[in-house]
Simulated scan of single mutants.
Amino acid sequence: MVEQIHGVPVLHCAPEGHRLGAEREATDLIGEAWSRQANTVVIPVTRLSEEFFRLETRLLGDFAQKFVNYGIRLVFLGDVSAHAARSSALTSYLRETNRGKHVWFLADRAELTARLAPAG
């Protein structure tokens, strides 16, 4: 589903479905975003495997980098605190990405709507 939030076209992935994480799946989502004229893709964290949050697997980094390379904002929506509690490296990664404009880890829809609001 694509919706406009503060004038930003956002493609939402369904909360149900197979686990995402492979680079090919990132490329497929980027293609879908382009075809539907969305510049932001939201993925519920429930669609991600445990391995996705272990940085040594490189799944998260490689997946996110595809979106950065193609200029599509990537938002992971949901609670990742349990994953962050197990890894100081992941906690640092989350903090750094949330400071930027390309990859965000947000708790809920309200936080997404606030982040997409125009500045000022």
Rank of each mutant, 00 (worst) to 15 (best):
M1L: 13
V2Y: 01
Q4I: 11
Q4R: 05
H6G: 07
G7I: 10
V8S: 07
V10F: 07
L11S: 03
H12K: 08
C13M: 09
A14I: 06
A14G: 07
P15W: 08
G17Q: 04
G17D: 02
H18N: 08
H18S: 13
R19Q: 10
L20Q: 03
L20M: 03
L20H: 00
G21K: 00
A22Q: 09
E23H: 10
R24V: 14
E25V: 04
A26S: 08
A26P: 02
A26K: 03
T27W: 08
I30V: 06
G31H: 11
G31I: 05
E32Q: 13
E32W: 08
Q37R: 11
V41W: 06
V42S: 04
I43A: 00
T46W: 02
R47P: 03
L48I: 02
S49Q: 07
E50A: 11
E50L: 11
E51Y: 07
F53G: 00
L55K: 08
L55M: 14
E56A: 09
R58F: 12
L59Y: 06
L60E: 01
G61T: 03
D62P: 02
D62M: 11
D62E: 04
F63K: 01
A64S: 15
Q65V: 04
Q65T: 07
K66F: 03
V68D: 02
N69S: 09
N69D: 15
Y70F: 06
I72D: 02
I72H: 03
R73Q: 15
L74K: 00
F76H: 03
F76Y: 14
G78K: 09
G78T: 05
D79Y: 07
V80P: 00
S81A: 13
A82Y: 04
H83K: 04
A84G: 04
A85E: 14
R86H: 03
R86L: 09
A89P: 10
T91N: 11
T91C: 09
T91S: 15
S92V: 12
E96Q: 12
T97H: 15
N98C: 07
R99W: 09
G100E: 13
K101E: 14
W104L: 12
A107Q: 14
A107V: 07
D108Q: 13
D108I: 11
D108H: 15
R109I: 06
R109L: 12
L112W: 07
L112A: 11
A114V: 05
R115P: 10
R115D: 05
A117M: 08
P118V: 15
P118F: 12
A119V: 10
A119I: 15
A119N: 11
G120N: 10
